[in-house]
Computed example of a mutant assay.
Amino acid sequence: MSKILAFTNQKGGVGKTTSTANIGAGLLRAGKRVLLVDLDPQANLSKGLGVVKAEKNVYGALLQEYPLKAYPAHGMGLIAGSPALSGFEKVKGDELDREFLLKELLEPIRGKFDYILLDCPPALGLVTLNAYACAQELYIPLEAQLYATDGLEMVLGLVSRVQRRLNPELIVGGIFFTRHDARKVLRRETAEQMRAQHPELVLNSFIRESIALGEAPHLGKDIFTYAPQSAGATDYQALVAEILTR
């Protein structure tokens, strides 16, 4: 049975989608069978791996319009995203057990994969609740800068409620810093402050600022394929190794 990891942050632009794609690619390199699920209405995970305008996506599957379809993406499976996900709450908000629709959708295929990675939207709505309700672990990418802790505390508060009401097995697997530059005093001090506040959650690995990480999705590639010698590849390889030990 696969382990389901959700990558989440209430704040956008923190490298959540980049992390989902590259951690998935790193797990594949470690010999794991990997499925990625694009739950963000922007569908950047799908676009960044070369799956554009997919005929069958996660939104239609959640609405039971057609069976779940995984597209091939560099050796991984990818369930494509859709802009229509932004209306998911309006369509399903009054439905009984609406928080478990994604769990029910993924359950029949869990045996085919070692890891299922969920790229959550930058909002704490019904789509994110569905992700939390079926995940075993959450990973929170974060920039070590002013106001970063605000989004983190909102996520941790929601996790606590989900643990009580929907998914008692859910844990926070870890927090990791993205676009990190230890030479900048504010980033270094913020990182140290957060490590002091959440010593059991902040991972040792962090992702440095890297031009290659921004370039790779434009060519439909992960960082290991695009720039295997880059700082981004080195950092994500270390992060994957740490995740595998948790």
Rank of each mutant, 00 (worst) to 15 (best):
G157P: 15
L102W: 14
L138I: 11
E99H: 08
Q163H: 00
Q145F: 03
P122V: 01
C120M: 06
P141A: 10
I140Y: 13
A123R: 08
L106M: 14
L152C: 06
F113T: 03
L129Y: 04
K103E: 13
Y147R: 02
Q136V: 00
P108Y: 04
P121V: 04
E107A: 10
D94L: 14
Q136T: 03
A131M: 14
M154R: 07
Y132V: 10
L101G: 05
L129C: 10
D119A: 03
L126Y: 09
Q163S: 01
L152D: 03
G111A: 02
Y139W: 13
Q163N: 00
D94H: 15
L117M: 12
R98P: 07
F100R: 15
L126E: 11
L152R: 04
G157S: 15
E143V: 04
R110Y: 02
L117S: 09
L102I: 04
L129D: 12
G157A: 13
V162Y: 08
I116S: 02
T149L: 11
L138H: 02
A133R: 05
Q145P: 09
F100N: 15
L106E: 05
L96F: 13
L158G: 08
S160P: 03
L158K: 12
F100D: 15
E104F: 08
G111R: 03
E153D: 13
E95N: 12
I116V: 05
G125F: 01
L156D: 12
D94E: 12
L102S: 10
D114W: 03
R161W: 05
F113H: 11
P141V: 06
V159Q: 14
N130E: 04
G125M: 00
A144M: 10
R98C: 08
E95P: 08
L96H: 12
